[in-house]
Simulated scan of single mutants.
Amino acid sequence: MSLTAQQLLDIASQYRDTTRDYYLRQEASPQHERLAALWKQELLKLDRWHAFIRSLAREMPGFTFGDGTAPLSPCFRCVAYPATSYPHPSVPWAVVGCVSILAPVYTVYGVEFGREAPVRGGSTLYLDDLPDFMSAVALGLGTKLEAQFHVTALPREMARTPVPLFVESKAPPETTLFDALFTDRPEVIP
């Protein structure tokens, strides 16, 4: 069953603030408290998530997989790095798969890293058309996320839908449905 952009916005609105009021206070908003409670519940599934990541390493040779889940973002994230470039800082690019904890949707995107001296530099984010060298792993990762977690891909045009929500570093009118369901800083990965 596919959800509409409005249905996804309604869901995200339960966990994301519609004003900046609580950012100026010391107390958590009701939305933030709901998100924290949901994360507490979802963290009980962390063993299943880690087992999934281990299975990816067996099923998709040539890549090193890691957990990129961050509690401020309402999703589980796995990161695929080309195996020949691991460990850091020589990682030239990565493909990231996200499963939202708010709605039964996922996304896959790519990040290409620049190099500044011996560490990663600026990055190029690919939310839509991934370069050819990322496409195969992105397709494989998406297929495995769908099968394992019974989620559907968030259509790219829907992901870009502006939403009237405040999400960590993003504020309307820049905030999108992608930000609200997954992360406002997709380029920040381990």
Score class of each variant (00 low, 15 high):
L3T: 00
T4A: 03
T4F: 02
A5G: 07
Q6C: 00
L8F: 00
L9Q: 06
D10I: 02
A12F: 01
A12L: 04
D17R: 09
D17E: 12
D17F: 02
T18H: 11
T19R: 04
R20M: 07
R20G: 11
Y23L: 15
R25M: 13
E27M: 05
A28Y: 13
S29Q: 01
P30T: 05
Q31R: 10
E33C: 06
L35E: 00
A36E: 14
L38M: 06
W39L: 02
K40Q: 15
K40R: 15
Q41R: 14
Q41V: 08
E42S: 08
L43Q: 15
L43F: 15
L44I: 05
L44Q: 13
K45G: 08
L46V: 03
L46T: 11
D47A: 12
D47R: 14
S55A: 10
R58C: 06
E59W: 04
M60H: 11
F63S: 03
F63C: 04
F63Y: 15
T64E: 13
T64V: 15
T64A: 09
G66S: 11
D67V: 03
D67I: 02
G68F: 01
T69P: 00
T69N: 02
A70F: 15
L72P: 10
S73T: 06
F76P: 00
R77F: 11
A80S: 06
A80L: 03
Y81K: 09
Y81Q: 03
P82H: 02
A83N: 04
S85G: 08
S85M: 04
S85R: 02
H88T: 10
P89W: 09
W93N: 07
A94E: 08
V96I: 15
C98I: 05
V99T: 10
S100Q: 01
A103M: 05
P104S: 07
T107P: 03
G110R: 07
V111G: 00
V111L: 03
F113T: 05
G114R: 10
R115E: 11
R115M: 12
P118Y: 11
V119T: 12
V119H: 14
V119R: 14
G121N: 06
T124R: 15
T124Y: 12
L125E: 04
L125Q: 08
D128Y: 10
D129Y: 08
D129W: 05
L130V: 07
F133R: 14
A138W: 00
G140F: 05
G140A: 11
G142S: 06
G142C: 03
T143Y: 13
K144Q: 15
E146W: 04
A147R: 12
H150V: 12
H150K: 14
V151W: 00
A153T: 11
P155L: 01
R156C: 08
M158E: 07
M158F: 05
R160Q: 14
T161R: 09
T161K: 04
T161H: 08
T161G: 01
P162F: 05
F166Y: 15
F166L: 08
K170W: 10
P172Q: 07
P172D: 09
P173R: 02
P173L: 06
P173N: 04
T176S: 13
L177V: 04
L177Q: 03
L177S: 01
L177D: 01
L181M: 07
F182P: 01
R185P: 04
R185F: 10
R185Y: 09
P186N: 08
E187Y: 12
V188Q: 13
I189Q: 14
